[in-house]
Protein backbone atom coordinates (compact mmCIF):
# COMPACT_ATOMS: atom_id res chain seq x y z
CA UNK A 1 0.00 0.00 0.00
CA UNK A 2 1.33 3.43 -0.92
CA UNK A 3 0.66 6.77 0.73
CA UNK A 4 0.72 10.20 -0.85
CA UNK A 5 3.54 12.49 0.27
CA UNK A 6 1.01 15.24 1.02
CA UNK A 7 -0.23 13.27 4.00
CA UNK A 8 3.23 12.64 5.46
CA UNK A 9 4.21 16.20 4.65
CA UNK A 10 1.14 17.49 6.53
CA UNK A 11 2.07 15.34 9.51
CA UNK A 12 5.60 16.75 9.40
CA UNK A 13 4.15 20.28 9.38
CA UNK A 14 1.92 19.42 12.32
CA UNK A 15 4.92 18.12 14.27
CA UNK A 16 7.24 21.02 13.39
CA UNK A 17 4.65 23.70 14.15
CA UNK A 18 3.47 22.03 17.35
CA UNK A 19 6.66 20.59 18.84
CA UNK A 20 9.45 22.34 16.92
CA UNK A 21 11.88 21.33 14.18
CA UNK A 22 14.39 19.90 16.65
CA UNK A 23 11.89 17.38 17.93
CA UNK A 24 11.00 16.39 14.38
CA UNK A 25 14.64 15.88 13.44
CA UNK A 26 15.05 13.64 16.51
CA UNK A 27 12.14 11.51 15.32
CA UNK A 28 13.50 11.26 11.80
CA UNK A 29 16.94 10.42 13.16
CA UNK A 30 15.42 7.58 15.18
CA UNK A 31 13.98 6.26 11.92
CA UNK A 32 17.45 6.38 10.37
CA UNK A 33 16.29 7.40 6.90
CA UNK A 34 18.61 9.30 4.65
CA UNK A 35 16.36 12.40 4.76
CA UNK A 36 14.48 14.32 7.42
CA UNK A 37 11.69 15.82 5.36
CA UNK A 38 8.88 14.42 3.20
CA UNK A 39 8.22 15.71 -0.30
CA UNK A 40 4.52 16.49 -0.87
CA UNK A 41 4.63 15.39 -4.51
CA UNK A 42 6.20 11.99 -3.86
CA UNK A 43 4.63 8.70 -2.86
CA UNK A 44 5.84 6.62 0.06
CA UNK A 45 5.19 3.13 1.39
CA UNK A 46 2.25 3.23 3.83
CA UNK A 47 4.44 1.32 6.29
CA UNK A 48 6.54 4.48 6.43
CA UNK A 49 3.58 6.35 7.95
CA UNK A 50 3.22 3.65 10.60
CA UNK A 51 6.92 3.91 11.41
CA UNK A 52 6.75 7.71 11.64
CA UNK A 53 3.75 7.60 13.97
CA UNK A 54 5.40 4.93 16.14
CA UNK A 55 8.59 6.99 16.40
CA UNK A 56 6.56 10.12 17.18
CA UNK A 57 4.57 8.37 19.89
CA UNK A 58 7.83 7.10 21.43
CA UNK A 59 9.49 10.51 21.20
CA UNK A 60 6.49 12.37 22.68
CA UNK A 61 5.72 9.57 25.16
CA UNK A 62 2.09 9.67 24.09
CA UNK A 63 -0.16 6.88 22.84
CA UNK A 64 -0.40 6.58 19.04
CA UNK A 65 -4.16 7.27 19.19
CA UNK A 66 -3.59 10.58 20.87
CA UNK A 67 -0.84 11.65 18.45
CA UNK A 68 -3.12 10.90 15.51
CA UNK A 69 -6.16 12.57 16.99
CA UNK A 70 -4.08 15.67 17.73
CA UNK A 71 -2.97 15.63 14.10
CA UNK A 72 -6.62 15.52 12.98
CA UNK A 73 -7.49 18.41 15.30
CA UNK A 74 -4.53 20.40 13.99
CA UNK A 75 -5.70 19.99 10.38
CA UNK A 76 -8.97 21.74 11.20
CA UNK A 77 -8.14 24.18 13.98
CA UNK A 78 -4.67 25.48 13.17
CA UNK A 79 -4.78 28.51 10.91
CA UNK A 80 -1.49 27.47 9.36
CA UNK A 81 -3.25 24.38 7.99
CA UNK A 82 -6.29 26.52 7.11
CA UNK A 83 -6.85 25.11 3.65
CA UNK A 84 -7.85 21.71 4.99
CA UNK A 85 -10.58 23.20 7.17
CA UNK A 86 -11.85 25.27 4.27
CA UNK A 87 -11.90 22.33 1.86
CA UNK A 88 -13.78 20.24 4.41
CA UNK A 89 -16.30 23.01 5.02
CA UNK A 90 -17.13 22.91 1.32
CA UNK A 91 -18.91 19.70 2.30
CA UNK A 92 -22.02 21.39 3.58
CA UNK A 93 -23.74 24.17 5.42
CA UNK A 94 -24.45 22.11 8.55
CA UNK A 95 -22.54 19.42 10.43
CA UNK A 96 -25.00 16.78 9.20
CA UNK A 97 -24.52 17.93 5.60
CA UNK A 98 -20.82 17.73 6.22
CA UNK A 99 -21.09 14.18 7.59
CA UNK A 100 -22.91 13.15 4.41
CA UNK A 101 -20.22 14.79 2.29
CA UNK A 102 -17.59 12.48 3.82
CA UNK A 103 -18.65 9.92 1.22
CA UNK A 104 -17.58 12.37 -1.52
CA UNK A 105 -14.31 13.32 0.16
CA UNK A 106 -12.05 10.89 -1.66
CA UNK A 107 -13.61 11.66 -5.07
CA UNK A 108 -13.44 15.40 -4.54
CA UNK A 109 -9.84 15.27 -3.39
CA UNK A 110 -8.96 13.29 -6.50
CA UNK A 111 -10.38 16.07 -8.67
CA UNK A 112 -7.58 18.21 -7.30
CA UNK A 113 -4.83 15.62 -6.79
CA UNK A 114 -5.56 12.54 -8.90
CA UNK A 115 -3.16 10.24 -7.06
CA UNK A 116 -4.21 11.34 -3.57
CA UNK A 117 -5.84 8.27 -2.11
CA UNK A 118 -7.86 9.44 0.87
CA UNK A 119 -9.82 6.74 2.64
CA UNK A 120 -13.16 5.79 1.18
CA UNK A 121 -15.70 6.67 3.85
CA UNK A 122 -19.28 5.44 4.25
CA UNK A 123 -21.84 7.11 6.42
CA UNK A 124 -24.80 5.23 7.90
CA UNK A 125 -27.64 7.10 9.52
CA UNK A 126 -28.84 5.04 12.46
CA UNK A 127 -31.22 7.76 13.64
CA UNK A 128 -31.48 11.47 12.86
CA UNK A 129 -29.00 12.14 15.68
CA UNK A 130 -26.86 9.00 15.43
CA UNK A 131 -24.43 8.05 12.67
CA UNK A 132 -21.76 5.46 12.05
CA UNK A 133 -18.73 6.40 9.95
CA UNK A 134 -16.89 3.49 8.30
CA UNK A 135 -13.41 3.72 6.75
CA UNK A 136 -12.38 0.64 4.78
CA UNK A 137 -8.86 -0.54 3.90
CA UNK A 138 -7.12 2.11 5.94
CA UNK A 139 -3.68 2.08 7.58
CA UNK A 140 -3.78 1.27 11.28
CA UNK A 141 -5.35 3.91 13.55
CA UNK A 142 -6.25 6.25 10.70
CA UNK A 143 -9.70 6.43 12.28
CA UNK A 144 -8.16 8.45 15.09
CA UNK A 145 -7.09 11.17 12.64
CA UNK A 146 -10.66 11.29 11.37
CA UNK A 147 -11.91 11.38 14.96
CA UNK A 148 -9.78 14.49 15.58
CA UNK A 149 -11.01 16.06 12.34
CA UNK A 150 -14.68 15.35 13.12
CA UNK A 151 -14.49 16.58 16.72
CA UNK A 152 -12.85 19.81 15.59
CA UNK A 153 -15.33 20.29 12.76
CA UNK A 154 -18.31 19.74 15.06
CA UNK A 155 -16.94 22.69 17.06
CA UNK A 156 -16.36 24.61 13.85
CA UNK A 157 -20.03 24.22 12.92
CA UNK A 158 -21.10 25.05 16.48
CA UNK A 159 -22.55 21.54 16.92
CA UNK A 160 -22.40 19.65 20.19
CA UNK A 161 -21.62 16.04 19.42
CA UNK A 162 -20.25 12.97 21.16
CA UNK A 163 -17.82 11.00 19.03
CA UNK A 164 -15.92 7.81 19.68
CA UNK A 165 -13.73 5.32 17.90
CA UNK A 166 -15.46 1.94 17.83
CA UNK A 167 -12.32 0.01 16.94
CA UNK A 168 -10.69 -1.77 14.05
CA UNK A 169 -11.63 -5.04 12.45
CA UNK A 170 -9.58 -6.44 9.59
CA UNK A 171 -8.69 -3.26 7.67
CA UNK A 172 -11.83 -1.36 8.65
CA UNK A 173 -12.25 1.26 11.35
CA UNK A 174 -15.56 2.68 12.53
CA UNK A 175 -16.56 5.78 14.46
CA UNK A 176 -19.84 6.68 16.06
CA UNK A 177 -21.30 10.19 16.05
CA UNK A 178 -24.08 11.24 18.44
CA UNK A 179 -25.49 14.69 17.83
CA UNK A 180 -26.53 16.34 21.10
CA UNK A 181 -27.33 19.86 19.87
CA UNK A 182 -27.04 20.97 16.27
CA UNK A 183 -26.67 24.65 17.11
CA UNK A 184 -24.97 24.68 20.43
CA UNK A 185 -22.37 27.38 19.97
CA UNK A 186 -21.54 30.13 17.54
CA UNK A 187 -19.25 28.07 15.37
CA UNK A 188 -16.82 29.69 12.98
CA UNK A 189 -17.90 31.70 9.97
CA UNK A 190 -17.32 30.17 6.55
CA UNK A 191 -17.76 31.58 3.08
CA UNK A 192 -17.23 29.66 -0.12
CA UNK A 193 -14.96 32.22 -1.75
CA UNK A 194 -11.59 32.98 -0.16
CA UNK A 195 -11.24 36.57 0.92
CA UNK A 196 -15.00 36.74 1.47
CA UNK A 197 -14.48 35.69 5.07
CA UNK A 198 -12.52 33.02 6.88
Amino acid sequence: MMMHGLILWSFERFMCLTYGHGRWRDIMRDLDLSYDSFVPMFRYEASMATAVVDATAAQLEKPRDMVLEDFGTFLVTDDRAGRVRRLLRFGGTSFVDFLHSLEDLSGRAQLAVPDLDLPVIELDEIRADEYVVTCRDVPKDLGHVLLGVLRALADDYGTLAFLEHLGREDQTETLSVHLLAMQHGEGRAFQLAMGGGT
Partner: peptide
Protein backbone atom coordinates in the same frame (compact mmCIF):
# COMPACT_ATOMS: atom_id res chain seq x y z
CA UNK B 1 -8.77 20.55 -13.84
CA UNK B 2 -6.66 20.35 -16.97
CA UNK B 3 -4.76 23.58 -16.29
CA UNK B 4 -4.20 22.52 -12.68
CA UNK B 5 -2.92 19.10 -13.77
CA UNK B 6 -0.43 20.73 -16.14
CA UNK B 7 0.79 23.11 -13.42
CA UNK B 8 1.06 20.25 -10.94
CA UNK B 9 3.04 18.08 -13.33
CA UNK B 10 5.52 20.91 -13.80
CA UNK B 11 5.80 21.35 -10.03
CA UNK B 12 6.18 17.64 -9.51
CA UNK B 13 8.95 17.38 -12.09
CA UNK B 14 10.71 20.29 -10.44
CA UNK B 15 10.36 18.62 -7.04
CA UNK B 16 11.85 15.38 -8.36
CA UNK B 17 14.74 17.24 -9.99
CA UNK B 18 15.52 19.30 -6.90
CA UNK B 19 15.29 16.21 -4.74
Amino acid sequence: VEAKTAAMEATSQLAHRLH
